[in-house]
Design a protein around this nucleic acid. Structure first.
Length: 429
RNA sequence: GGAGGCGUCGCCUAGUCCGGUCUAUGGCGCCCGCCUGCUAAGCGGGUUUGGGGGUUAUUCCCCAUCGCGAGUUCAAAUCUCGCCGCCUCCGCCA
């Protein structure tokens, strides 16, 4: 969310910057709304001041035995006027808030122009895609042939876009979770959390999924409660400090959590319908960093480095791209995507998205810290996948496949799975 | 789900029965100053948060805020109703 005054400050260049992501800011309308709201506040405040004076006068006069009926009559009139003024202010304040909540974050000027992933800038690549002297299969064929993935039965249970993993497939998922968490905790300095997977609408407003993107979420209701399944652990992790002031000495905070993620995938009919790439429910280890606003760019570099480190330990070729201004997510001011090489698709595919949200979420969730001179300011927040389990399984299967139908598991992970080869029949050793 | 208790400006706390003198008491902590070889103690002052207005050098004025919301009243921390959270006990449950 933005501070309306900051948006109207010419120095912010909000109109130009929002235009880069296709958002047109109506400055005159915003000026009008803000100033009429403020005028309403002044009117109501002044009336209340008068009302308080009258009440005190009534008390005094009554004590002295005077006649208070005229004073009371005037006080009742003011009360009506206050009510009227307040109703106007409330309406305008609600309109203003709704508007502010719907405006995306300002992209940084360092981002490339454009609106699609084709406009992204490639930052660096790591590793070499494996060469095969046979036609590599994709992870769906590999998983079904070895019997470690079962999409047909997942559909029987829950419909399309779910997965069942069996035997080595399930063990692979569990091993990856431990491997990712251990690396972040022991080598990257993160604190592990276990968090609720159902959260309140308020939490989702805090991180920006609501009110605009409700159709992407799974909503639950039980009794009078209204809870949503989390689309990412970013939501509970970031909101841990909602309505708090985090002392500067505690920053930066580095949090990680392993959770399921639930996404309705509305509007993606026909895209990645096969396999693990786009499903309604997947496991993910998420990283969240919270820092002073002037540190967010440094922190973003660390964050993306932590995601890359996992792929490097697994020996998976990947590249880092800087998303174009118009392709960057609603809450982010800058996003690096890490893309892993998928031989089955003969392409790099997104496996991690690392975003610097600046103070955008901090303001929405009311997470603050203090400046050197003790003033309160909103923190900056960052989040990145580190990493999603399903997409990593897909990458491991496709990159590790051998001519004999077996799959070789990287050494770093074998310590966690207890096997280093999945044979064509699904057995391991 | 049922019964009871509690919720006050960082922490603790007075005030709530009986509405106006609450501009919310006191202590602790913290900040500034005085005193002082130094430190402590002592003394004096300050210390909720959010918003609006005027000035823009500072500063000043106003409004809201006693868990949240509604109501009664000229006037609510105080009375009424609803809700939320926490604690204790009971029921149910993995």
């Amino acid at each position: 969310m933005h501070d309306p005054r900051a948006l109207l400050d010419p120095g912010t260049e909000a109109v130009r910057r929002l235009a880069r992501r296709g958002y047109t800011l109506d400055v005159p309308a915003l000026e009008e709304l803000l100033s009429s709201r403020n005028a309403g506040i002044k009117t109501a405040d002044d009336l209340r001041a008068e009302s308080k004076k009258l009440a005190a006068e009534v008390g005094k006069t009554a004590k002295a035995g005077g006649d208070v009926s005229a004073l009371k009559e005037r006080a009742r009139q003011i009360k009506d006027e206050i009510k009227q003024a307040e109703e106007g202010v409330e309406q305008k304040a609600a309109d203003l808030r709704e508007w502010m909540l719907s405006i995306p974050n300002l992209p940084l000027d360092s981002l490339p122009d454009g609106f699609s992933d084709e406009d992204a800038t490639e930052i660096r690549t790591w590793g070499t895609p494996p060469e095969f002297d046979f036609t590599p299969l994709d992870h769906v064929d590999l998983g079904e042939r070895t019997g470690i993935l079962d999409f047909a039965r997942a559909t029987k249970l829950s419909g399309p876009r779910f997965r069942v993993a069996k035997g080595a497939g399930a063990a692979l998922e569990r091993g990856l979770v431990s491997f990712f968490l251990d690396t972040h905790i022991r080598e990257h300095g993160y604190t592990e959390f276990a968090v609720p997977h159902l959260v309140s609408p308020t939490a989702l407003v805090g991180t920006g999924q609501l009110p605009k993107f409700e159709e992407d979420l799974f909503r639950t209701s039980a009794g009078s409660r209204d809870l949503y399944l989390i689309p990412t652990a970013e939501v509970p992790l970031t909101n841990l400090h909602a309505d708090e002031i985090v002392e500067p000495g505690e920053l930066p905070l580095a949090y990680t959590a392993w959770t399921p993620c639930f996404r309705s995938e509305a509007g993606s009919y026909g895209r990645d319908t096969r396999g693990l790439i786009r499903v309604h429910e997947f496991e993910k280890v998420e990283m969240v960093r919270i820092c002073a606003p002037d540190q967010s760019q440094n922190e973003l570099e660390k964050l993306v480095g932590h995601a890359e480190a996992l792929l490097q330990k697994l020996g998976l070729a990947h590249r880092v791209i800087l998303l174009a201004a118009g392709d960057t997510g609603f809450g982010a001011q800058m996003t690096y995507d890490v893309e892993v090489w998928l031989p089955g698709q003969n392409a790099f595919r997104e496996i991690s998205s690392c975003s610097d949200c600046g103070q955008f979420q901090g303001r929405r969730a009311n997470i603050r810290t203090r400046t050197e001179d003790g003033k309160r300011e909103f923190v900056a927040t960052l989040n990145g996948s580190g990493l999603p389990i399903g997409r990593t399984v897909a990458a491991l299967l496709e990159n590790g496949q051998q001519a004999d139908g077996s799959i070789v598991i990287p050494e770093a992970l074998a310590k966690y799975t207890g096997f280093s080869t999945i044979h064509a029949d699904g057995k391991t050793d």
